[in-house]
Amino acid sequence: MGFTASQRQVFTLIKSCPLAEGISMQCLRNSLKYLSFYDIRTCLQFLINEGHIYSTIDDCHFKCTN
């Protein structure tokens, strides 16, 4: 889908979360320790802009659209 390696890793984690409210920002940070907070936020913004993911109960929880 034209993702960078970081974007793909963020997307894959979001997609794999079974929770109704989606994955939390804290969980993403804990699972992607080699990425900076800035990098994760940048990946999230790209995925939101492209309609791949969306925020759920607040701006810190995410699910994927497909």
């Binding site: 929770l19 109704a20 409210e21 989606g22 939101i48 802009n49 492209e50 309609g51 791949h52 993911i53 969306y54 925020s55 759920t56 109960i57 699910k63 659209t65």
Partner: peptide, 29 residues
Amino acid sequence: SSLTAEQQRKIEENRQRALARRAERLAQG
């Protein structure tokens, strides 16, 4: 975890908005 009806409504609303955005991006190529 169980979500309230309001939370479920908000999530579905955001999901529909994201789907529309995805369709828009695909249409743009």
